[in-house]
């Protein structure tokens, strides 16, 4: 019988380092997309607080911390990242297990903002995009979710099938930024 080997989305692609930026893969234990039912938003937030210790994030915000985050994921949607969704949440929201569906990377370093500025058509500078802020936007041609997880660090999510493109885009932008710095 064939022996199946589990591979992470960015296996063989990361880590990556260049200039003042490092990109590493994040492998959350689970990812669950939650879409609270109409009229159950408050009950869902209470249940999420009881079960995982964090409230439902407002639009464009993320709650929680490393290991278990609730990230706003578009209209009426929250992605629970890290923690396995507890059954207490059932009945309040439609849930979809998307653990293997996303490639998640962490980009950190002094030039992380400069690298993303080459790829993302929105302002991600600290002044306007602070820790705990999140956005659904584009990275190159890919739809993405970007969350600031530190003063110089972001978590980037793209569809798993786009992992290689994501790493390639980041690598090219990192080379460009490093080249400008060296000049």
């Amino acid at each position: 019988m064939a022996e199946l080997i589990a591979k992470t989305p960015c296996a063989g692609l990361l880590p990556l380092e260049g200039g003042a930026v490092a990109v590493t893969e994040v492998v959350p234990e689970a990812m669950t997309l939650m879409a609270p039912f109409n009229g159950r938003e408050a009950a869902f937030s209470d249940a999420l607080k009881d079960a995982h210790g964090m409230a439902t994030p407002a639009p464009k915000r993320a709650t929680g911390r490393e290991g278990a985050r609730a990230v706003w994921f578009g209209r009426g949607q929250v992605m629970l990242i890290g923690a396995r969704a507890q059954t207490a949440l059932a009945g309040h929201a439609a849930q979809t297990d998307q653990s293997d569906a996303w490639a998640a990377v962490r980009i950190a370093g002094d030039d992380a903002e400069a690298v993303l500025a080459r790829l993302v058509p929105m302002d991600l500078r600290q002044r306007v995009f602070k820790r705990g802020h999140t956005a659904r936007t584009l990275l190159g041609h890919m739809t993405t979710s970007i969350t600031r997880v530190g003063d110089d660090a972001f978590m980037i999510l793209v569809f798993r099938s786009m992992a290689e493109t994501l790493v390639h885009e980041l690598q090219t932008a990192m080379k460009g930024v490093a080249g400008r710095r060296g000049a």
Partner: peptide, 11 residues
């Protein structure tokens, strides 16, 4: 109305 001002290519 939710995300704020964004580039046309997102739409």
């Amino acid at each position: 109305p939710i995300c704020g001002e964004r580039d046309r290519r997102e739409f």
